[in-house]
Computed example of a mutant assay.
Amino acid sequence: MTLGFPNPSRSFDETRNAVRFIGHDGMFEVPFFIEAGALAGPLRAPGRTGPGEADCLAAFDAARSSIHEVARKAYTQGRRPSYTLTAADFR
Score class of each variant (00 low, 15 high):
P8Y: 09
A58I: 15
T76L: 09
P51K: 08
L85M: 02
A36P: 06
T86P: 00
V19L: 11
I67M: 07
P31Y: 01
T15W: 08
S65K: 08
F33H: 10
F33I: 04
D55Q: 03
K73Q: 14
L3N: 00
F32L: 03
G4C: 12
V70P: 15
S82A: 10
T76C: 08
M1C: 06
A58V: 14
R80D: 15
G37M: 06
L3I: 04
R64H: 08
S11C: 13
G47E: 00
E69F: 10
G50V: 01
A54N: 06
F5M: 04
A38E: 06
A40K: 07
L3G: 01
A45Q: 09
H68G: 12
G47K: 00
A59D: 05
A87E: 07
G50Q: 03
G78I: 00
R91V: 15
A71W: 07
K73S: 15
R64D: 12
E35Q: 15
V30Q: 02
G41Q: 11
D55A: 08
G26T: 11
G26W: 09
F90S: 04
F32G: 01
D25E: 14
D89K: 00
T84K: 06
V70I: 14
P31K: 01
F90A: 03
P46T: 03
T2P: 15
R79E: 15
P46W: 01
I34D: 04
L43W: 02
Y75D: 05
M1S: 05
R80L: 09
A40W: 12
G47L: 02
S66M: 13
G23M: 13
A36S: 08
E29G: 05
A59M: 03
A88Y: 01
R79N: 10
D13C: 08
A45F: 09
S9R: 10
A87Q: 03
H68T: 09
I67F: 09
A59Q: 04
F5C: 04
A62W: 02
L85S: 00
V19S: 13
L3A: 01
I22G: 10
G23A: 14
R64W: 09
P81W: 06
T2L: 05
H68V: 09
D13W: 14
M27Y: 12
G47R: 00
A62L: 02
G26P: 14
G37D: 05
A59L: 06
V19I: 10
R44V: 14
D55E: 01
G50M: 05
P51C: 10
S11T: 15
N7W: 06
P8N: 09
S9V: 14
D25C: 15
F12M: 03
Q77F: 13
N17K: 11
G47D: 00
R64G: 04
P42S: 11
V70T: 12
G23I: 15
S11Y: 11
S66Y: 13
E69H: 06
A38F: 07
G78Y: 03
F32Q: 00
R44Q: 08
D89Q: 01
